[in-house]
Design a protein around this nucleic acid. Sequence first.
DNA 1: GTGCACGACTGTCCAGGACAAACACAGCAA
DNA 2: TTGCTGTGTTTGTCCTGGACAGTCGTGCAC
Lengths: 296, 296
Amino acid sequence: MHNGYPIAFIERATGISRETLRIWERRYGFPAPARDAQGDRIYSQGDMDRLRRIKRLMDQGHRPGKLVPLGVKALARLEVPARTEMPEVAEGLEDFLTLLRRPGAEGARDWLRRRMAREPLASVTTGLLEPLTRAVGDAWAAGRLCVHEEHLYSEMMSRLLRGAIDALPPGTGPTILLTTLSEERHGLSLLMVEALLRAEDARCINLGVDTPIPEILLAVERHGARVLALSFSRAFPRRRIGPQLTALREQLPAGCQIWAGGGGMAHCKPLPGIQVCHELPDATALLAAMGATEVG
Amino acid sequence: MHNGYPIAFIERATGISRETLRIWERRYGFPAPARDAQGDRIYSQGDMDRLRRIKRLMDQGHRPGKLVPLGVKALARLEVPARTEMPEVAEGLEDFLTLLRRPGAEGARDWLRRRMAREPLASVTTGLLEPLTRAVGDAWAAGRLCVHEEHLYSEMMSRLLRGAIDALPPGTGPTILLTTLSEERHGLSLLMVEALLRAEDARCINLGVDTPIPEILLAVERHGARVLALSFSRAFPRRRIGPQLTALREQLPAGCQIWAGGGGMAHCKPLPGIQVCHELPDATALLAAMGATEVG
DNA sequence: GTGCACGACTGTCCAGGACAAACACAGCAA
DNA sequence: TTGCTGTGTTTGTCCTGGACAGTCGTGCAC
């Protein structure tokens, strides 16, 4: 439609850089976009769909050389089916999505509010909000949810979480600095970790997303943080995780722990001096371990 | 330091694309970075400072051809001194920054909370939060504030605003959809507009930042929005504002108004069918005008 | 099975050329 | 003076094709 998309649009929509797009074309013959009168690349809707699938699979650990030559069908066969490990969430998901799609979406917000009022923050976060967010992300990735619906969900959820966190009394435990590295713009899991830790009486300082490493070092020093908690989404370039964490570890004082979590850490090798949170509750466990060490 | 920065780092740190950096070097002879053993560009700290000044002045409407050949001193002379139009804010600013710099920064949050509790949301937003945010932005641009301090401020402010907005009863007036276009990631002013409009009983749906145009169209239709409110920061590429707004205007139903505001709209020509909010209270006026039209 | 070396893979960088859209400005008409 | 229009300049983005370093996987020797 619209006669197709220019390369800059594809770069933004897929997260694959222009240079990579051009070199794939040169090396693998895909994508092979049409050209406009001036010789500029014009990608089709089909190109974009296929590229998005490829990117998604790359985020899960596949290598481009294997994926790019594959057709849409072969790609679809590789896709991991959405996790159904949380049956209660899975069955509630469709109802929730229906509420979210209503004009105004107030029903979805009210439903979440009621659920959050009914249970302690920590348990509702691990038991409902985190699996729900993952399910919404999967639905979006599978094309069952529009971008604007996902945006609305994110905004709604981050509002509710921040409200719930601010309603807690200020923490008195160890100070924990939360943020993401440069180019990582997914902050929801950061908020969920903060909710868990604040519920355990930690003192949390959330810098939001996209903080460069030198600034993180300054902030840790400024606030006397005992822990630096970082979140990596699946879309974060994997090759950069190791080096960046190592650089941080070298430059941070030994008295400051580093906790790393999020989907991007799933396929990551263990690194010296870095605690990995594969699941959300791991953060609570790490905090408890800190307290135990201190007492002992 | 660290032997200098590669081009990808400079691109992120200054917001100037690689291609532009290279073409400036070719055309104007600046920046003229050193090269590493492999021939890759290595920019100095001085290059980065000068490029940031240039970018800042470009965001204010200057053209590159005039700026790039200038030295740091000449650039500094061009800089508009920080606005002092709000003397009460200006004098309070230093105290606030001192609070913000304390470990934990709880003093800053408590101060803001007290001020917000003392006054109605609308007046505290226009009278304090907006000028304060602008002052913080200026302080950051002038290098008087670290990135991590600015991040903490943004997170704190957006938390307080969202909390205050959620505390209001749900609106019953016209539905207003708030968001920013793709690549625009500054959402604070969106929250401030939402606060003002919700205080006037509008029904607000905030999609957050970075929503592509087709998705905006879908969302307007879905929620039956009467108004689409967009915010553009000064860093938003100016050349794109006009075409994007025009495209939206053409594709949106005539019954849906478009309001555009933020620092990026300052130097923008008037466009047919687009209401420009130069100041925050303009949004309130536009809402009032809507009500009047309806009644009349 | 374990470790190492080699080779393939992959993204990012380089140079230099081209063009269209935006802009500034001069010249002219009202 | 004001407003418009045409022309030349400015500016960012796109193009091609080449090169290289770091990562990853494979296969061989032990």
